[in-house]
Design a protein around this nucleic acid. Structure first.
Lengths: 184, 184
DNA sequence: CGTAAGTGCTACAGTCGAGTGACAGTTAGC
DNA sequence: GCTAACTGTCACTCGACTGTAGCACTTACG
């Protein structure tokens, strides 16, 4: 099913025929597993959601030290993004799926608030800015920096997230000049 | 035409009927102005490209001090993003349009290289990371922080881009705690 | 060997959107 | 009032996709 997800990530309007072809099976076979197109999409998104929830749990966002939890979370989500690259946001007709998605987002927001309270993140930033920047950084790292392992990509994302790309900040340990250069 | 672009931004697969309806005219009228759907899309994207090129020129990326040019560029592009929110990337069948887009991207990359050479941006980062993070930050600010003016949003984007969101960095002048809070 | 499950393939109806044609109504300028 | 340009509307063809039906084939299992 992951291959079909990759197809949908490239083109959310992909036809069942195209999705089936990429997965190496016939269009009719897809309909034997999923009653409709919507059901297939829901199944894929649910798989992604489950992976996200697993990664969130593994990161122990509520208990672990914020710096540790942040890195573990980023690394986990980058892995999820690569396994289930499907973007969605459009195909959210299902109320239960939408609710699960919102819960995951809220969990991230709560964690980032804790990180702010504990002094890791600067306070006073506009609402939603912090919790939108982080997923986007993870998204870029997942999509465009395929040469980096999830752990290496997480180093870069966390460092960029906390310190930016200006010259006046500390470079990440083990990701310095010449260390993790990726191809074009 | 901007209204049609807003429609396409929300759903790239929007029908001509829907686009025309949002623009307050009949589907048939659209076909009188544009020979085909592809031509309409091309026209919209060309309008965005022209605005981008104007903003790039206004920022004087080659001559102005890098810090100044960066801020001017970000402010300009945020304005463009709000006027022409269309995302594209998918609808790039036209070779000339694609080439213009690539040229704009190259211009940004060149500028960011200069900014690195002159010590504004940290060297040794993976290829493509810097030039992908900045547009994404501008995109979030354009879409989700609608309460902020382009200038205010640019303050935030530049500060985040250079210093990140960690507590150990200087907050932007005039965008401190309680200053530019946006509604959730 | 025989059966059952799963798959590929062809064919079909229904829907939706793209694009075109023809006609009627409206507005501006003479 | 008359004309020209523009627009709205009805009606059509064409193509692509969804979802379903039926039949043939392969594979595994007893």
């Amino acid at each position: 099913m992951t291959t079909g997800a990759r197809m949908l990530a490239a083109d959310p309007a992909a036809s069942i025929t195209a999705i089936a072809a990429e997965a190496g099976m016939d269009r009719r076979t897809v309909y034997r597993r999923f009653a409709s197109r919507e059901e297939l999409l829901t199944a894929i998104y649910e798989a992604r959601l489950t992976a996200i929830e697993q990664a969130t749990e593994d990161a122990r966002l509520h208990e672990a030290p914020v710096a540790v939890a942040l890195h573990r979370y980023v690394e986990g989500i980058i892995g999820v993004n690569r396994t289930w690259p499907v973007d969605l946001g459009r195909m959210l007709a299902d109320e239960p799926v939408r609710e699960r998605r919102d819960r995951s987002y809220r969990e991230l927001t709560d964690f980032l608030r804790r990180a702010t309270d504990e002094g890791l993140i600067r306070p006073g930033l506009p609402d939603g800015w912090v919790s939108r920047v982080l997923p986007q950084l993870m998204g870029i790292a997942s999509r465009d920096l395929t040469d980096l392992s999830p752990a290496q990509a997480a180093d870069l994302v966390v460092d960029t997230f906390l310190h930016g790309l200006g010259a006046g900040a500390a470079a990440p340990r083990g990701a310095g000049p010449g260390g993790t250069r990726a191809a074009g």
